[in-house]
Amino acid sequence: MKREDKRQNIGFGALLAATLLVVIPVLAIVVLIVAKGWGALSWEFLFSMPRDGMRAGGIFPAIVGTIYLVFISLIFALPIGVMAAIYLSEYAKDNALTRVINLAIINLAGVSSVVFGLFGLSLFVVFLKFGVSIISGALTLGIMTLPVIITTTREALRSVPASYREVSFSLGASRWQTVRHAVLPRALSGILTGAILSVGRVAGETAPILFTVAAFYLPNLPTGLSDQAMALPYHLYVITTQIPGIPESFRYGTALVLIGFVLVMNIIATVIRSKAGKKR
């Protein structure tokens, strides 16, 4: 028995070591970016245009571009994603079509992000003649984020007790009325969580926007959907790999803004989720 205990201690120790090997770098990454990027943050950095070939000034246009992309892609993807989840959770029968849909969602979630970029280029930029523009990039990002929205919304709908649906039906409500009045209100926080998670995801993606919207440098802010735009993740890529002589603090500052945005979105989603969990 003693020997077994010893073996167990060694085993658990190894598991702990592996876990630390995963977790410590994560903390190190966050600490490093915050420590080195904090100094770069200033009013000027956040809210002014870049100067001197992006070696000075700020990242304002990249922030604006990312906000544009996030919201327009969400306006497109959220209704489709939520309705798709409603279909799967409330309407779909257990048949071949449903299996095909589920398979499609899994594949949409698994396709390489750069392939989405190619698709956006081929469909929106070239075929539909939208050009390299905010609308092309936002639609590409929107399609990419659909699986996130669909799966989180579907989970939220499935967690609504079946008895609510029964009661609603028994009171003469139609299926849509039941969904609208008895099911959806209960699933709102879950849907919100999915939307916020997808916002974080969209904000950080680079590959899908490379050929559909992203601009290296623009002297003006975008004025409409058919304009190109700068975007935070692409900007970070550009100043890291394409332009020599950029102050390191600029790079860390940009990374901090990006990661800060993404993490804040995730924290908000987690808080909403845990609040909703407690209510139940």
């Binding site: 995963v22 977790v23 994560v26 903390l27 990454i29 966050v30 490093l32 970016i33 992000s113 974080g200 995801r201 904000a203 950080g204 993606e205 680079t206 590959a207 993740p233 692409y234 970070l236 890529y237 890291t240 790079r251 990374a255 990006l258 990661i259 993404v262 993490l263 979105m265 995730n266 987690t270």
Partner: peptide, 17 residues
């Protein structure tokens, strides 16, 4: 939550580091 943070870090940020 650490694992979730890791999942959320954009790929370009990891590339930069």
């Amino acid at each position: 939550s650490c694992v979730e943070v890791l999942a959320a870090i954009p790929s370009v940020v990891l590339g930069f580091l």
